[in-house]
């Protein structure tokens, strides 16, 4: 029981009705807000360690809430959204949300995401010199990637891409983010680059390309680097 504080922002009474007891039972200290304004206020005063945010709020756009939160805090944000609101989801991630979950979802999945986001937040602050996933190790200081002890040869672009994903392990990186940071802002929409490079990296680091374990595809949104099996 870590007792970490989680802020749930949702205007649907029914959602709060099950999230609150479930997350409490899972050991979190749950606080709730039903509007954007209240959410921003709670985030400032109650200093939660994680925020679960529904994008459809009565008083303001969920994306605006993310934007305003991100202006002063790095607290992990998990967005709740509907499957048919793809662009909204990507926009939320681009604005700085850490993860997203489509409704309807099982509580197990939510708690797993919460754990990953919290852990990732800590590891990022630690700024370790190596990133690992299964038998894959990325030595940032020596720019060396090894798989089961054997060196993996990567081109500079492949390495940059892999490191970018690895540094944000557990987080969903949208296509736009990856393209912008690796290839530059002019190539933000050149999705084909990304597809080709991801395929090449997977061929070099994954055990089975057809069922990737390290770099997972988030369909229509982006990619996620798994720093441990099962999130």
């Amino acid at each position: 029981m870590s007792g970490q504080r989680v802020l749930i922002v949702d205007d649907e009474q029914q959602i709060l009705r099950f999230l609150k007891p479930a997350l409490s039972a899972a050991g979190y200290d749950v606080i709730e807000a039903m509007t954007g304004e209240k959410a921003l206020a709670s985030a400032a005063t109650a200093s939660p360690e994680l925020i679960i945010l529904d994008l459809g709020l009565p008083d303001m756009d969920g994306k605006e809430v993310i934007q305003r939160l991100r202006s002063w805090t790095r607290v992990p944000i998990i967005v709740l959204s509907a499957r048919d609101r793809e662009t909204e989801k990507i926009a939320a991630l681009d604005l700085g949300a850490d993860d997203y979950l489509e409704k309807p979802f099982g509580i197990g999945e939510l708690t797993a995401r919460i754990r990953a986001a919290l852990r990732h937040n800590q590891s990022e602050t630690a700024a370790s010199a190596t990133i690992t996933s299964g038998n894959l190790t990325i030595d940032l200081a020596r720019r060396l990637v090894t798989k089961s002890g054997e060196t993996v040869r990567l081109t500079p672009k492949e390495y940059d891409l892999l490191v970018l994903l690895g540094r944000h392990a557990g987080r969903v990186m949208t296509h736009g983010m990856l393209l912008k940071q690796v290839w530059g802002p002019a190539h933000e929409h050149d999705l084909q680059y990304l597809r080709v490079f991801i395929r090449q990296i997977r061929a070099k680091i994954e055990e089975n390309e057809a069922a990737p374990q390290i770099i997972l595809t988030e369909p229509g949104v982006g990619y996620r680097f798994m720093s441990e099996a099962g999130l």
Binding site: F18, P21, A82, G106
Partner: peptide
């Protein structure tokens, strides 16, 4: 329509999985 269908479904799924996962601790 999808919102109207999804919200009750999300609640039911969430509640059921909560009971399954954490029922003994509630």
């Amino acid at each position: 329509i999808s919102h109207d269908l999804r919200t009750p479904l999300a609640t039911i799924t969430g509640a059921v999985t909560s009971l399954k996962e954490f029922g003994d601790r509630m």
